[in-house]
Write a protein that binds this DNA or RNA. Structure first.
Length: 504
RNA sequence: GCCCCCAUCGUCUAGCGGCCUAGGACACAGCCCUUUCAAGGCUGCGACAUGGGUUCGAAUCCCAUUGGGGGCGCCA
């Protein structure tokens, strides 16, 4: 008995291999003007899956709610996605002077729902012609009434099917008379089963859902309908999205069946929560990716953090590069329980990525911030000094935006920061030390060995050592009791500046 | 009200019946390193929601309860 089983396994493998089509995933945000971290994580999971499998990542804009949709709001979204490094293979183009509505890439477009209205309308009417859907003439008021009544009688608030059994002729007559109507699908009386990649088997019993609208009386399609039509037409093979859509899947399975299409594989990740465990929203602070970019977070840290919030490889690993994530990512390892967005951990992670970064890569990120904080400082234009400076402050930064503050503590000459600092440099011994050191510095080689020797020599002359030696020098030169290592500071400042500060 | 999902330290999580007196990370505290502050290293603090089963054995499987979340729209 073992042999046939093994055989069939091989056979299945072969068939699956042959049948396996290109994997196509999508991210379908509404154009709200910015990318929410929850959306970013959804986009990331999709993107990782596409990149891991060599598939395609499609970007589709769900803008049937036209009011919010403008070039600016779309670009805001695309900008954030680009910043994260989540590039898409199909969808609107992004860039200076590009109109995302007009310039799109991919052959399954258009990728704006607002540009696909005829498609939805045509399909909705086809379904109606086939009797899979039907026109409903119930008015808003009537429906509201029914809902109320159902609630009072403790029945479920489904549509009662008033227009379900209208004859074709009767319906046509009312349509011809110009009566407004919506199109509803006839929901089959049967159970539906979803085999979710992360949640496993999810079942809906027959009768838990009433006939629902797919096309409004205005001719505008409804979300669940658009999604299914688009996903089907765009050849989406895997839908990865947040848990809030889990119950929508029931309707969507019905619609796939109505269209005679095979549904994609679904993966429902859970929600991202705020510190109070309610769904992450603006009142919890920064929720848009753009805000984190401005605060000085690195895209690779953001990616790493978001990936680990709701996904893990099954081990203790915390730090991943983007490439490593692509290699390790599996849909089945997405976690089922919701997670709190922990900014402290994000900060830590940012520090990890920041410190792991080669100085040459860090310089272009930090230089503009330094330049902005110290616009008149010519030294920043010197690549050698800039390199030394960034190298020195790298270990002291958590965020990119920490750079100016850390640099300023020693890069710019300043008065003692407080009385404690002032007291340190105003002792007689300290004053003696500074002069001795200035003299030594004038004649030494300006390399680490040189000024280390000078400090030693001055130490003997002024009869101070240890903390009484280094702290006064630090305070005299920088004005602060804290900062990067002293010899590094000397490296950056150079001989002239250092001596000038000692003698000031 | 009905439907669906979820449940391990404060937080993110490992765990998929014996390796668990439950491991790692963030945060917190202490120590070490160090001319300072960081960074780094070490140590500590700290959790299987509750109640029933199943089993020789349960964080792990099943059922209830409780708690959280989502949905039930001519919103997306």
């Amino acid at each position: 008995m073992l042999f046939p089983m093994v055989m069939s396994k091989f056979l299945w493998g072969a068939i699956l291999f042959k049948m396996s089509e290109e994997i196509r995933v999508r991210f379908a945000p509404s154009p709200t003007g910015y990318l929410h971290v929850g959306g970013a994580r959804t986009a990331l999971f999709n993107w990782l899956w596409a990149r891991k499998t060599g598939g395609k990542f499609v970007l589709r804009i769900e803008d049937t709610d036209e009011a919010r949709s403008t070039v600016e709001s779309v670009n805001g979204m695309l900008h954030d996605l680009k910043w994260l490094g989540l590039d898409w293979d199909e969808g609107p183009e992004y860039g200076e002077g590009i109109d995302p509505y007009k310039q799109q890439k991919g052959d399954k477009g258009p990728y704006f729902q607002s540009q696909r209205l005829e498609i939805y309308q045509k399909i909705a009417h086809e379904l109606m012609d086939k009797g899979i859907a039907y026109p409903c003439f119930c008015t808003d008021e009537e429906l509201e009434e029914k809902r109320k009544k159902a609630e009072e009688e403790h029945r479920s608030v489904h549509y009662d099917g008033t227009c379900r059994n209208l004859t074709k002729e009767e319906a046509q007559k009312r349509i011809d008379a110009g009566e407004p109507y919506t199109i509803r699908v006839r929901v089959p009386q049967k159970d539906y089963v979803l085999e979710d990649e992360v949640r496993g088997r999810v079942e809906w019993k027959a009768g838990t859902l009433g006939d629902f609208i797919i096309l409004r009386s205005s001719g505008m399609p409804v979300y669940n309908f658009c999604v299914v039509v688009d996903d089907a037409l765009m050849g989406i093979t895997h839908v990865v999205r947040a848990e809030e859509h889990l119950t929508n899947t029931h309707r969507q399975l019905i619609l796939y069946e109505a269209l005679g299409m095979k549904p994609p594989r679904f993966s429902h990740a859970s929600l991202i929560l705020g510190p109070d465990k309610s769904k992450l929203s603006k009142r919890h602070g920064a929720t848009s990716v753009g805000q984190y970019a401005e605060e000085g977070f690195l895209p690779e840290a953001m990616i790493n953090f978001l990936a680990l919030l709701g996904w893990n490889e099954g081990n203790d690993r915390e730090i991943y590069s983007v490439k490593e994530l692509i290699d390790c990512f599996e849909l089945s390892h997405i976690s089922k329980s919701p997670g709190v967005f922990d900014k402290d951990k994000l900060m830590w992670m940012n520090g990890q990525h920041l410190r792991a970064m080669p100085v040459d890569e860090l310089i272009p990120l930090v230089a503009p911030l330094l330049k902005k904080a110290m616009p008149d400082d010519k030294r920043l234009d010197d690549p050698v000094i800039l390199h030394k400076l960034v190298e020195l402050i790298q270990v002291k930064m958590t965020l990119l935006t920490d750079a100016p503050e850390v640099a300023k503590t020693f890069f710019e000459a300043s008065e003692p920061e407080n009385d404690e600092a002032r007291a340190i440099i105003e002792t007689e011994k300290s004053k003696k030390l500074f002069e001795a050191l200035a003299v030594e510095f004038e004649k030494c080689d300006w390399v680490r060995e040189g000024y280390n020797a000078s400090i030693k020599a001055a130490s003997k002359i002024a009869e101070v050592k240890g903390k009484d030696l280094y702290m006064p020098i630090r305070v005299k030169i920088t004005g602060s009791c804290h900062g990067p290592e002293l010899v590094g500071i000397l490296d950056v400042l150079g001989r002239e500046e250092t001596i000038a500060r000692l003698r000031k």
